[in-house]
Amino acid sequence: MATETTLEVLGLKELDELLKTLPAKIEGNVIRGAMRAGQNVIGAAAKKTLAANGNIHTGALQKSIRVRFVRKSEKKYGWVRANLIAGNKEAWYAHLIEFGTGSFYAGHGTTSKKQPYEIRPKYRKSLFFSGLMREVIVHPGIKPQSFMRSAFDANNERAVLAFADYIRTRLPREIKKVNQ
């Protein structure tokens, strides 16, 4: 069940007018830094959520949580997009932890048996798994263990405050540089 969060931010019109007086490069740098500050709050919370759930084996999933900025080929001033990403070559399974896996795969196409997935040997009579011989291995699936969404839901207001604090501290320095 999704919950709706309402957050009111005041002063955006004034901030937009102030940013338009600055060169576009400085405007983009300030906004990118502010977005990174806000995303880092949520990323740190996601790492803590993983640790609290006991999902740390190698630490690769925690290390893979990062902020990425999307660059467009056509330069649109005033548009900056940042994504908080989990997963890389080492932690390719991030989406499986976040959303879980289904256990109802029939093994042939997209049909479903609505029961746990059974792994049967194709050519032999038994499988060697975890040091034991088995005829069938039942894979029940993985329950969703949301770490990104729960971090966002719990920390979105703190992220907006971090965004605002970054702008509050950096913008006067940039204006001073331009006016010198």
Score class of each variant (00 low, 15 high):
41 V>A: 01
57 H>F: 11
119 I>T: 03
171 L>T: 02
33 G>D: 02
175 I>R: 07
178 V>G: 01
15 L>G: 01
101 T>H: 13
2 A>T: 09
133 M>Y: 15
55 N>R: 12
36 R>W: 08
118 E>I: 13
57 H>C: 00
32 R>Q: 13
89 K>F: 07
29 N>P: 00
143 K>Q: 13
97 I>M: 07
72 K>E: 14
39 Q>I: 06
92 W>C: 00
4 E>W: 12
104 F>K: 12
146 S>R: 15
150 S>P: 01
178 V>A: 05
111 T>I: 15
42 I>H: 04
86 A>R: 05
92 W>K: 06
16 D>L: 07
90 E>M: 14
134 R>C: 02
6 T>V: 10
140 P>F: 09
46 A>Y: 05
23 P>R: 12
167 I>M: 12
49 T>F: 10
74 E>H: 10
63 K>T: 04
159 A>R: 02
91 A>H: 05
53 N>Q: 14
96 L>C: 03
137 I>G: 01
90 E>D: 15
18 L>N: 08
179 N>R: 15
26 I>M: 10
157 E>R: 14
63 K>N: 14
146 S>K: 13
8 E>D: 12
85 I>V: 15
6 T>Y: 10
158 R>E: 15
70 V>R: 10
104 F>W: 14
147 F>K: 03
175 I>C: 04
47 K>C: 01
7 L>I: 15
107 G>M: 09
65 I>Y: 03
131 G>H: 07
141 G>S: 05
176 K>D: 06
9 V>S: 03
178 V>S: 03
160 V>G: 01
9 V>G: 05
50 L>Q: 02
137 I>C: 03
131 G>E: 05
45 A>G: 04
145 Q>D: 10
15 L>W: 05
84 L>W: 10
122 K>M: 08
54 G>L: 05
55 N>V: 08
11 G>E: 08
112 S>V: 03
78 G>H: 14
51 A>G: 08
175 I>Q: 05
40 N>M: 13
163 F>E: 00
89 K>I: 04
148 M>T: 04
143 K>C: 00
57 H>L: 09
179 N>F: 15
110 T>I: 13
111 T>A: 12
50 L>M: 09
60 A>K: 06
67 V>P: 02
67 V>D: 07
28 G>T: 14
120 R>Y: 07
25 K>E: 12
113 K>S: 08
8 E>R: 12
100 G>M: 05
80 V>H: 12
87 G>D: 02
158 R>W: 04
90 E>S: 13
128 F>A: 01
64 S>R: 07
180 Q>D: 09
134 R>A: 07
16 D>E: 13
62 Q>L: 09
117 Y>F: 13
